[in-house]
Design a protein around this nucleic acid. Structure first.
Length: 418
DNA sequence: TCTGGGGTCCTAGGACCC
DNA sequence: TCTGGGGTCCTAGGACCC
């Protein structure tokens, strides 16, 4: 059986271990630049504060309820995380540390699950001060749901098992499909269009149709919900494939010099991370983008990658290549999404559209296609049509139309844009 | 109405997670 | 005024090859 052990409100719990006077008081912890709320104590959740909300939007609430606000302290959280994981390791060597506050355990079958799990829970609390919830089930995906239920069921006391089919079916019918691990906002929306709104409905959906429409990852979720384990425990984490340092700026950056300076700084931090992981980089990528929250302005994004002749983690060397990559971006010209232009609005769902076309005879398909293109032409002009039709083949792969809300033009014009 | 068929590699983009 | 940062995996399309 898989167990998912998840710390409750981890960052705020860490702050409380560090400062017990905070027990019972409302706390939030903020993201790196103190921009967003990334952790909330139960008291704050009860006030309706959402995960990820910009802190300036809840200033009045903070004043009103005397919410304690903390900048994130990742070295403290990392340290406490290690202690929690080490404690769990006492129960079984088969442990996958999934994130800073979660671990999957492979547990042997026991007679009294309730007793056993409460023992784990109490031990972690006693040894580290961190409260955890535990879900147990035959697959990782179900264990995730069990954990969710452990947290939301009032008399569960932080422990929940989904062992037999009857319990699984009863509980899954009460879980929203968007609460299933691996189902995000987009997929939830799409599933809803097909009448799938609960975890139970997804479990009973046709897995091949799901695969066709949403890919193999979604199909695995269906199987996992049925109790068929597709996601194994990963005992030793594979080495990182990339390390990133990225930041949003406080002010719009309009000079190349300022941009390069920042990129040099981030590159040196990235190099330090690489050395910390005992890794060397074979490719270096620099990317830039405009502030996505300024609506009605054209959005710009670009990147340049350089294959390093010799893989390295040396700061000076990496900065050298980062500067070259940055110059490449400056030279490249640029693409931007025109604000407010979203071709997918014309064609709401790629797959639906394709199915629609499949069902019609060719003359009718052709007529519809011409109409769509005419609409695009009318709304956005022929430049967009040119991009929209790139790759359009005789069998009318409408995907090409949906995928090209972009323009190409020269760097000089960015000055006007910015 | 049909248009060769098989392959590899790379890139961009879209989805998800914490 | 202020809107996070760090990851992974999968898919589609295009260039290119024989």
């Amino acid at each position: 059986m898989f167990a998912l052990i998840d710390a409750n409100n981890f960052y705020t719990s860490c702050e409380r271990v560090f400062n017990p006077k905070l027990n019972g008081k409302p706390i939030v912890v903020l993201s790196n630049n103190d921009g967003c709320v990334v952790a909330r104590s139960n008291e704050v959740k009860a006030l309706g504060v959402k995960m990820g909300i910009p802190v300036f939007q809840i200033r009045p609430l903070i004043e009103q309820h005397h919410i304690q606000v903390y900048s994130s302290n990742y070295s403290l959280y990392g340290d406490l995380s290690q202690r929690v994981m080490a404690t769990l390791g006492e129960f079984t060597p088969e442990i996958e540390v999934y994130s800073i506050d979660e671990a999957f355990l492979m547990l042997p079958n026991v007679q009294d699950w309730n007793d056993y799990l409460h023992q784990i829970q109490a031990t972690v609390k006693r040894w580290t001060g961190i409260p955890v919830s535990i879900g147990v089930a035959p697959t990782k995906t179900l264990a995730k749901i069990a954990n969710h239920l452990a947290k939301t069921t009032p008399d569960a006391a932080g422990v929940f098992t989904l062992l037999d089919t009857a319990t699984q079916e009863r509980m899954l019918s009460q879980v929203k499909v968007s609460d299933v691990w691996g189902i995000g906002r987009q997929w939830a929306k799409r599933l809803k269009q097909h009448g799938i709104e609960t975890a139970l409905q997804l479990r009973e959906a046709n897995e091949w149709q799901i695969k066709q429409r949403m890919g193999v990852v979604a199909m695995r979720i269906v199987l996992e919900l049925r109790g068929l384990s597709c996601l194994p425990l990963e005992l030793c984490p594979p080495p990182k494939k990339m390390r990133t340092v990225s930041r949003s700026f406080e002010h719009p950056v309009e000079s190349r010099a300022e941009l390069k300076e920042a990129i040099a700084t981030y590159t040196s931090r990235a190099a330090a991370k690489l050395r910390g992981d005992n890794l060397i980089a074979g490719v270096l990528t620099v990317f830039v983008m405009t502030n996505q929250f300024i609506h009605n302005e054209p959005q710009y994004q670009n990147s340049a990658s350089i294959s390093l002749p010799v893989a390295t983690n040396d700061t000076a060397e990496l900065i050298h290549y980062a500067m070259r990559a940055t110059d490449t971006i400056f030279r490249k010209g640029y693409r931007y999404k025109r604000a407010g232009v979203n071709l997918t609005e014309l064609i709401p769902d790629t797959i639906e559209q394709r199915n629609l076309f499949d069902d019609l005879n060719k003359r009718e398909r052709s007529r519809q296609l011409m109409q769509v293109i005419d609409n695009i032409n009318r709304k956005f002009g022929s430049e967009t049509v040119r991009y929209a039709t790139t790759g359009l083949k005789r069998d009318w792969q409408m995907k090409a139309v949906c995928r090209s809300p972009r323009f190409t033009t020269r760097w000089d014009e960015l000055a006007e844009v910015s």
